[in-house]
Amino acid sequence: MEHSENLNQWLPKHIRKLVAAKAALAEVPVLKEGFLNAHRPTGLYKTIGTDEDHSQRPDINATRLKEELTAHVHLNSQQICIGNGSTELIDLVIRTFCHAGKDRILGFQPSSARMAHFAQMQALELDLLELGHDFELPIYEVRKRISESTKMLFIENPNHITGSCFANFDIVDLVTSFDGIVVIDESAIDYSSDKSLVSILKDCSNLIIIQSFSRAWGLAGLPVGMAYASPEIIQVLNLLKPPFSVNTMAQKMAKKALYVADQKERIVTKTIQEREQVKAVLQKLPAVLEVFESETNTLLLRVEDADIMTEHLKKEELIHVLNVSALPGLENCIRISIGKGLDNMRLVKAFKDMPSKTAGPRLFWKAVSGTLRQASSFLGVFKKILGV
């Protein structure tokens, strides 16, 4: 089936009409708009580090930024849509492809609330499957839950709450077998040991991958998001996205960031090292019951009492903590963000200062358990030597 035929099959009728109308307008030459403010306050621009003229509208297509991105993601500019952060692009994709009262989105929990928020804003039916024991994709359950009304499959990879990554072969299996739109939110992919799935776009006309400059690139205050997909999908998204949503400064800073991509890689490496150092300390503390594996710049912890721990950390002015214990399977869990060295030291100290209700008994049984594991290991080696 041709891409255009697939696209018409997936797009709601009112969106197809809107795209046709927008496309017709796009063929008409657009006159350059006048200045919104012709008087240029030079001093203001100097205070933000530039003396350039910002009296005109931003480039609606972010043309120069796209040109720089093509070399980094090995796609052409017709496969890139630039938005005001990944959040705007998630909203745009849902509004573009899903019809209220008719279509369903299949997602997973625990996960961030962004997709669910926009689905509810569109009055869409939301089908959320719980992740497996180790936060793996429930492939069998997904296949059972997909129905004719399931228009979109939404996957966070890495997961923004748990910090875990799904196996790429599981994701590819779902993308290639699902007859609908698959959206993969890769906003935190730079921290992952797994590679982005951008490379499979050429073989998957139903796939949209969303990334962001907000996390590893450090531009959360100047949000820039990227949607990668087939040229046919990107054409539709570019026609429907809000105009001028990505300001000139954000576009220029994102482009500048690409020039120093090696610095970003060093920052990511440093963050991962600090994450593992914090993890090694926290998992030895009485107040921490469990530290989960992470592929992001956050750590998910299970503690004795998430409410008390959250309040304790906030008193220490450690604002990078999120109580996620209300989410399925995450009873008494909190998520912490990894900061710079001093921030992490303060975080660890705050955990150490938190008294444990059951520290004595738990530490005793933890020591006993460790001793038994060592004894079992030695016994296994001894049996091998004896040939038993």
Rank of each mutant, 00 (worst) to 15 (best):
V93G: 11
R95D: 10
F97N: 10
G101N: 02
D103K: 02
D103S: 09
G107F: 06
F108G: 13
F108C: 13
Q109T: 15
Q109W: 02
Q109D: 07
S112H: 09
S112E: 15
M115W: 04
A116C: 04
F118C: 07
A119P: 04
A119Q: 08
A119E: 09
M121C: 13
Q122Y: 00
L124D: 10
D127M: 07
E130D: 15
D134N: 14
F135C: 12
I139D: 03
E141V: 00
V142H: 07
R143V: 05
R145I: 00
I146M: 06
I146Q: 03
S147G: 13
T150H: 02
K151C: 14
F154V: 14
F154N: 06
I155Q: 07
N157E: 12
H160G: 15
I161F: 10
T162N: 05
C165T: 14
V172K: 15
V172A: 09
D173L: 04
V175K: 07
T176R: 14
S177H: 08
V182R: 09
V182F: 11
E186L: 08
Y191R: 01
S192C: 14
D194Y: 05
D194E: 11
V198Y: 01
S199C: 03
I200P: 02
K202L: 03
K202N: 07
D203M: 01
C204T: 09
C204D: 00
C204N: 14
I208M: 11
I208K: 06
I210W: 04
F213N: 05
F213V: 10
R215N: 14
W217C: 10
G218A: 11
L219S: 11
A220Q: 12
